[in-house]
């Protein structure tokens, strides 16, 4: 009886473990996509609450459609949980590839791993994930180098001295820190340039306005604001207009968004770093197409150079790119 009971318990335990173990990963299925043929491509964007990302998403979608795919945009609303839900739906929805603008450099890794294991290849655009073995390739803005150049221009325009504020983007995004570190790798070498405040406004225009309004109360005498993206630059400019300081304080952005390019034309914003969202999005869609057709040898990370746009060279540029490339 005791032996039978023991056997019974072992069987039950095994079945239970098997049931709980169902979460275990399936073997890798990369390569299965070849059998899917031209089908659907998912475009997952960190947020559509910023025109720059709307351009990124729409261009990726348009290029995928030109290549013969049905393309759908998913908005993660800067939330990795929403992003995860999107990936679940995409995997279940039999998509051939994902063109992915991640929400969080660390937090998004699991989603890309999940899609890889399900046999759906992921191509990161603009923002990176801190892993080099899950995405097929990552086409990234070279933010650090772009902000080195921005820092040099900033130093020149400030005549190597003055007080400034830095508005940071989302703290979990590598772009935020690559931009900030590139900028500081230059500016911090000038002891008469004093950063009076460094705060996050999460790449958001409204938050930037509120944050700078608050900073200006404690530090009314500043000479410049360096913003980690153009949306924050526009918010900062609005705050300066409200405070009657728009003519005295220089604003520097980063992105190459339409309203900032227009503002550089109008002499309101001093400079921005032109990223190339259209170029990156097209590359991602084309590489996904090549992958589906059989190419597998992609470099893991591809930095795309950022170019400094100022009031001196604005004629060469338009929103989101160079005049010559439109």
């Amino acid at each position: 009886m005791t032996r039978r009971l023991l056997l019974f318990i072992i069987v039950i335990l095994s079945l239970t473990l098997l049931a709980f173990g169902c979460k275990q990963k399936r073997p890798e299925q990369v390569g299965d996509e070849e059998s899917r043929g031209k089908g659907k491509i998912a475009v997952v964007i960190s947020t559509l609450n910023n025109p720059w990302f709307v351009v990124l998403g729409n261009t990726a979608k348009e290029r995928a459609e030109q290549l013969g795919y049905e393309a759908t945009i998913f908005d993660s609303q800067n939330d990795t949980a929403k992003e995860s839900d999107h990936f679940d739906n995409i995997i279940a929805g039999d998509y051939a590839a994902i063109l992915f603008n991640p929400t969080d450099a660390d937090g998004s890794i699991a989603n890309v791993r999940k899609s890889k294991e399900a046999g759906v290849p992921t191509f990161c655009i603009d923002r990176e994930i801190n892993a080099n073995d899950v995405a097929v390739t990552q086409i990234l803005s070279d933010n650090y180098t772009g902000c080195v150049e921005m820092g040099q221009y900033f130093v020149k325009r400030m005549n190597e001295k003055g007080k400034y504020v830095e508005l940071l983007g989302i703290l979990g995004d590598n772009n935020t820190w690559n931009r900030s570190k590139g900028f500081h790798s230059v500016v911090d070498n000038y002891p008469e340039l004093k950063m009076v405040s460094q705060q996050t406004a999460e790449f958001d225009r409204t938050k930037a306005m509120e944050v700078l309004e608050s900073i200006l109360q404690a530090n009314p005498e500043i000479d410049a604001v360096f913003c980690g993206n153009d949306a924050m630059a526009m918010g900062a400019y609005q705050a300066l207009v409200a405070a009657g300081k728009a003519d005295k304080v220089m604003v520097f952005g980063f992105d190459g968004a339409k309203d900032v390019i227009d503002s550089i034309h109008d002499g309101k914003i001093v400079a921005t770093g032109m990223q190339f969202p259209k170029k990156m999005a097209r590359m991602a869609a084309e590489q996904a197409d090549e992958y589906i057709k059989g190419r597998k040898d992609f470099p893991q990370k591809v930095p795309v150079a950022v170019e400094l746009v100022t009031q001196e060279n604005i004629a060469k540029y338009t929103a989101y790119g160079r005049q010559s490339e439109q």
Binding site: A105, N130, N132, Y144, Q152, N174, V186, P299, K301, P303
Partner: peptide
């Protein structure tokens, strides 16, 4: 007294950005 940028790293052609899990290290 200081040098900005990536001229030496990139001109050497010896360091591949794809080796790094995040580009911050590369920079």
């Amino acid at each position: 007294f200081y040098i900005p940028g990536n001229a030496v790293r990139d001109a050497s052609g010896l360091i591949d950005v794809s080796e790094f899990s995040d580009t911050m290290k590369f920079n």
